[in-house]
Amino acid sequence: MGGTVAAVSSNGTYTFTKPNRESITLLAGLGVEGDVHAGVTVKHRFRMRKDPSQPNLRQVHLMHEELFEELRGAGFTVAAGELGENVTTRGIDLLGLPTGALLHIGDEAVVEVTGLRNPCAQIDTFQKGL
């Protein structure tokens, strides 16, 4: 499967968007080094309130750049990192990847798909109607 990494983003504090970076380091079993969502157990605030001991299945958040083009067609302006993703791809059918699929990123990193993420209510605060 061919494709490219269009952007990488991370943030050490809880914010909706994540600034783009020159590079990120993926740590096995943890996620993106220095990112607020890295760790063995869940780091998303809503899920932490429910059960902070549950496994972190969202260590690395991927999003396809083509989504931003679709959103532009609907009148929204969204760029890489603005929806909180760590890795923005191009040319990869992320939505079509089955749970358990292994996605090779760069020369060494392998990310296992653990599922789709449901849109968060904060998206509507970011841009009304999004």
Rank of each mutant, 00 (worst) to 15 (best):
Gly115Asp: 02
Gly81Phe: 12
Ala101Trp: 15
Gly91Phe: 03
Gly75His: 06
Asp124Glu: 14
Gly106Tyr: 09
Ala109His: 07
Gly106Ser: 09
Gly100Tyr: 04
Gly100Trp: 03
Asp93Lys: 02
Ala121Met: 08
Pro98Cys: 07
Leu83Thr: 02
Thr89Cys: 02
Val87Gln: 00
Cys120Asp: 06
Leu71Glu: 09
Val87His: 01
Glu108Trp: 11
Leu103Glu: 02
Leu94Glu: 01
Val87Lys: 00
His104Ser: 11
Gly75Phe: 11
Leu103Thr: 04
Leu97Ser: 05
Ala79Ser: 07
Asp93Pro: 11
Ile123Asn: 13
Gly75Ala: 05
Ile92Trp: 02
Glu112Phe: 11
Thr88Asp: 10
Pro119Ser: 07
Cys120His: 03
His104Asn: 05
Glu85Phe: 08
Ala74Arg: 15
Ala109Gln: 09
Leu102Pro: 00
Gly84Phe: 12
Leu83Glu: 00
Gly75Lys: 05
Val110Gly: 00
Pro119Val: 05
Arg117Val: 13
Phe76Met: 05
Gly81Thr: 06
Arg90Glu: 13
Leu103Gln: 07
Ile92Arg: 04
Thr114Ser: 05
Ala121Thr: 07
Gly106Asn: 12
Glu108Leu: 11
Gly91Trp: 04
Val87Leu: 09
Leu102Ser: 01
Ala121Trp: 15
Leu102Gly: 00
Leu102Phe: 00
Val78Trp: 05
Thr88Cys: 14
Gly106Glu: 10
Cys120Met: 08
Asp93Ser: 09
Ala109Gly: 02
Ala79Phe: 15
Gly106Thr: 10
Gln122His: 13
Gly106His: 11
Phe126Ile: 03
Gln122Ile: 03
Leu95Gly: 14
Phe126Gly: 05
His104Phe: 00
Gly96Asp: 06
Ile105Met: 09
Ala121Gln: 10
Ile92Phe: 02
Arg117Gly: 04
Glu108Asn: 08
Val111Gly: 03
Asn118Met: 14
Ala101Lys: 08
Phe126Thr: 04
Phe76Asn: 10
Thr99Val: 15
Gln122Glu: 13
Asn86Pro: 04
Thr99Lys: 11
